[in-house]
């Protein structure tokens, strides 16, 4: 099975330097990743190539979603390549809490682009890393949903069926 990447992209009304800063400094990350309770955001960051970031992000249900990032490449204000995994509170890599066959490791490439006039574009591309065939199939199913729009279509089906 060949696995296509999943990409999301967004243009922000912010200069590139500011976007880079709030994406890479834990004090800022706490404020946008955990806007309701920044103090609850957990972060141990070693921001350098080969370094790691262990984080815990509070979820709306009160639980904390832990993850580990390992930085492979950092080009300031241009590009970050990192490996992303879910983790437990002790920093051990774990399966996705809702989907056990979700790829344990994902390779994420983030690119930053200055669009001028105080705007910048952020693009993130994910591909499964060292994935089993089952993990790749799980990722493919979700990617088809994110980018093919079937979550919307099936959401409609679900709503329709619920009314029968």
């Amino acid at each position: 099975m060949t696995t296509a990447p999943l990409t999301v992209s967004r243009v922000f009304k912010a200069p590139l330097a500011l976007l880079w800063q709030v994406q890479t400094e834990p004090a800022h990350m706490a404020k946008w990743l955990s806007p309701d309770n920044p103090a609850a955001f957990i972060s141990r960051m070693d921001f350098r190539e080969g370094g790691t970031h262990f984080y815990g992000s509070p979820m709306p249900d009160g639980s904390i979603m832990y993850g580990i990032v390992t930085y492979r490449e950092i080009v300031p204000m241009q590009r970050i390549v990192h490996v992303q995994s879910f983790a437990d509170k002790d920093g051990n890599i774990t399966p996705h809490p809702m989907a056990p066959t979700w790829p344990r490791e994902m390779l994420a490439t983030t690119t930053y682009e200055d669009l001028g006039d105080g705007t910048s574009r952020l693009s993130i591309t994910w591909v499964p890393l060292n994935a089993t065939e089952v993990e790749e199939a799980t990722f493919d199913g979700a990617r088809a949903g994110m980018q093919g729009g079937w979550d919307h279509q099936f959401g409609q089906i679900e709503t329709y069926l619920a009314g029968l």
Binding site: V8, R10, F12, K13, A14, L18, L19, V22, Q23, H28, K31, W32, L33, P35, M65, M98, A99, L122, I124, A142, G145, M146, D151, F154, G155, E158
Partner: peptide, 25 residues
Amino acid sequence: AQLTDFMAHFAQVTEGQLDQLETYL
């Protein structure tokens, strides 16, 4: 139904984070 729960979760940790980043900026 289980799938749409998962997709909502998935969207929350991707698009949702970008929304939060936008608001913060």
